[in-house]
């Protein structure tokens, strides 16, 4: 009986010793200065529509347009940058470039940038594509139709 009572404190000491080792391992891994860096700017989504709100976000998502529509592409970004260039390159089904617009931005968090095109005489019917570029590199594209 006496032997059994001695076994319990010894076992507890052994467990405590193990967990202390594990703790010190975790402390070593948490190197200061490696956890808080500003998130790099990236494009998180592109929406197409006919209207936008005051926050440059599309209010009626669609990829089917009429020739007389103004076509909006709202580009959602996350992250920060002191100076970045977002571009929208609109192309027709035959590869013709319809328009290219660029905008310099300096976001400090989530932001939305809209690009839009319109054509007073009406867009030719067919398939189109808008390609979004961040600092010259293509990051996303969306296909849409004019019917």
């Amino acid at each position: 009986m006496t032997r059994r009572l001695w076994i319990i404190p010894c076992a507890l000491l052994a467990v405590a010793g193990c967990s202390k080792k594990a703790d010190s391992g975790t402390d070593t891994a948490a190197t200061p200065g490696t956890t808080t860096t500003a998130e790099a700017l990236s494009v998180s989504g592109v929406d197409l529509g006919r209207t936008i709100d005051a926050n440059s976000r599309v209010t009626d998502k669609t990829d089917d347009f009429k020739p007389s529509d103004t076509i909006y592409a709202s580009v959602a970004t996350t992250g920060t940058s002191p100076n970045a260039t977002l571009s929208a390159k609109w192309t027709y089904q035959d590869g013709q470039v319809v328009d290219t617009t660029s905008r310099a931005i300096a976001p400090a968090g989530a932001a939305a940038t809209e690009f839009h095109i319109s054509k007073p005489s009406g867009f030719p019917k067919g398939n189109y594509k808008v390609e979004i570029m961040l600092n010259g590199a293509s990051v996303q594209s969306k296909d849409f139709k004019v019917e």
Binding site: N55, S56, T77, P82, N83, A84, L86, A88, W90, V98, D99, T101, R103, A104, I105, A106, P107, A108, A111, A112, T113, E114, F115, H116, I117, S118, K119, P120
Partner: peptide, 12 residues
């Protein structure tokens, strides 16, 4: 074709 843009992000 007419085009334009606007953004909630400030300009640099």
């Amino acid at each position: 074709v007419q085009s334009g843009s606007s953004s909630t992000a400030p300009a640099p």
